Simulated scan of single mutants.
Amino acid sequence: MPLATTGELIAAARQNNRAVAAFNVITLEHAEAIATGAEQAGADAILQISENAVKFHGGSLTAIAAAAKAVAGTSRARLSLHLDHVVSEDLLKRAHAEGFSSVMFDASKMTYAENVKATAEAVRWGHERGIWVEAELGKVGGKEGEPPLDAHAPGVRTDPDEARAYVEATGVDALAVAVGSSHAMTERTAALDHELIAALQRAVPVPLVLHGSSGVPDAEIREAVRSGMLKINVGTALNTAFTGAVRAFLEAHPSAVDPRKYLVPAREAMAGTVAHFLRQLEG
């Protein structure tokens, strides 16, 4: 199916009273699993490639983006391509040429004033090229290389009044907010602040994005969608499924050397995880 745009998928989710999930692509197997899981669930999905994934591929965006686009083009599911957690201005400005319809520009480590200035410039640049731009306000911790962050600590969560002012000042198309989740969680124990999600949904006119959804239980995700979340980001859960399947295969077959033998169950495990998350997103 032709590559969709993230804006189209978000608009369709909003119209149909549901959310759309964005899954992190690290390898070709990730992209294939996301497409298969979306087909199994009969749902749209977003293929998202992070700046950290680009670093893993030696700083080259071209090859992994081309692979993701090729997978989307042969899938029966509607899929879009999103560049996630972009800090580098150089990487941001490669998005359009590589076929991305959306970017998450991450200036969350800056002061509020610096964040507004940098994000507004990224939005201006993106909108001139038809790119949908997401940004983050608050502190969704847990990224590799960051110090530990308590998702419930004072000052971490996104303030609705500040969110309203931020959206007006930057012109962003979507806002990632801190409401109790954290990146890189391997256990699904996060407790979300649903009253805050609802308040943020009332405060800003743009879609809300939940980062760190791998650590959020199913019931919490469903409630988050009902409260107003429109984009649900999932990464670590795919890696947990992938690694668990590889580990189980190699423990059972210690003499195996052909990577295809263990990548098949790994890809299947990720596809099942994708389908499971997508089935939670009805509003």
Score class of each variant (00 low, 15 high):
147 P>M: 01
148 P>G: 10
149 L>N: 00
149 L>Q: 00
153 A>N: 05
153 A>R: 03
153 A>E: 03
153 A>F: 00
154 P>V: 04
154 P>E: 15
155 G>A: 00
157 R>D: 01
158 T>K: 14
158 T>H: 08
162 E>N: 02
162 E>H: 00
164 R>S: 08
165 A>K: 01
168 E>F: 15
169 A>T: 03
170 T>P: 00
170 T>Y: 12
170 T>Q: 10
171 G>E: 11
172 V>A: 07
173 D>P: 01
174 A>K: 15
175 L>I: 08
178 A>S: 11
180 G>S: 10
183 H>V: 02
184 A>D: 10
184 A>K: 01
185 M>I: 02
186 T>C: 13
187 E>D: 11
188 R>D: 06
188 R>P: 03
190 A>W: 11
191 A>E: 12
192 L>W: 02
192 L>Y: 04
193 D>C: 13
195 E>Q: 07
196 L>E: 11
196 L>M: 14
198 A>D: 07
199 A>G: 05
199 A>W: 09
199 A>C: 06
201 Q>I: 04
201 Q>C: 09
202 R>A: 15
202 R>Q: 08
203 A>Y: 09
203 A>D: 02
204 V>L: 10
206 V>Q: 13
207 P>D: 09
208 L>S: 02
209 V>K: 00
210 L>V: 10
211 H>Q: 04
211 H>F: 11
212 G>N: 10
213 S>L: 13
214 S>C: 07
216 V>R: 01
218 D>L: 04
218 D>T: 11
220 E>C: 05
222 R>Y: 06
223 E>K: 15
223 E>N: 09
225 V>D: 03
226 R>Q: 06
226 R>L: 05
226 R>W: 08
226 R>F: 09
228 G>C: 09
229 M>K: 06
229 M>R: 02
231 K>M: 13
231 K>S: 11
232 I>E: 06
232 I>V: 15
232 I>D: 04
236 T>F: 15
236 T>N: 06
236 T>Y: 15
237 A>E: 13
238 L>T: 06
238 L>W: 11
238 L>H: 08
